[in-house]
Amino acid sequence: MTTHTAPAERLRHPPELEAEPFGDSALMLRVKNDDADFRRAAGSRLRDVLLEVRPYGVLDIVAGVESLLVEFDCLAVTHEQLAQTIRLAVAGNALEPGAASASQSLFVIPMVASEEFSPDLPGVAEELGLSPEAVLRKFQSSVLTINLLAAAMAPMMGGVQFPGQVSRCVEPRTNVEPGSVMVAGTNAIIQPFPGPSGWKVIGRTPLTICDIREDPATSYKPGDSVRFEVVPEREWARLEGQFLRASDGGASLSAGASPKAGSEGANSDLP
């Protein structure tokens, strides 16, 4: 069951949105486009627009890789009403690439690569046809974008400059240590808390990336940029347990490296 798109040709050519009921109190939104990169980028801007506009009845939003699940109060609006409001909000806030979004920060995250911390590095290297050192060089030279916060506020990042896709583990691990830096496809993620994962582990950061005693519990948010920096294992003890903050905010290695303006107070929009 799909609700119909209103004729909108005159409204700055907004991308076509598919809105599908997911139960009585949720709507699944997908941007229709043949290009997966476009769908991802438009989906992330759609999330920003919805968080900004806060359509009446919306309770929360769950970001998927190429979609948004909008949870709403079914006593306040129907699926059809909400879909219409969202289409109007999109029409008034273009989702075209380059549209303005919230201010962004850069995070430079130290990681240690070792036999213990990088169990999947040899396998990833083999899959990509590179040496392990070359995999780490490619990884470090990539400027990643946080696309969404996954389970337990894990930053899911896109934009790893690998020459190919990294597959997932055939047998997912039942427990991966916090701080583990993992890759799949051309995405990366950091494990904030112990838990299962099927992603390939290529390193570990000594920093604490999420701490519920901090407010907010993470310094990063969707849209922020991340660069990894492989550091020698002897650095581990010095950095261990430090709370990750933006590179212009203190704890990380290369201070003042943010190429983006407006990162002052970048986290003020977090709850």
Binding site: R47, D60, V62, A63, L149, A152, M153, P271
Partner: peptide
């Protein structure tokens, strides 16, 4: 929690 799921919680 309210408004937490967009943050992954």
């Amino acid at each position: 929690r309210e408004n937490s799921e967009f943050m992954g919680v």
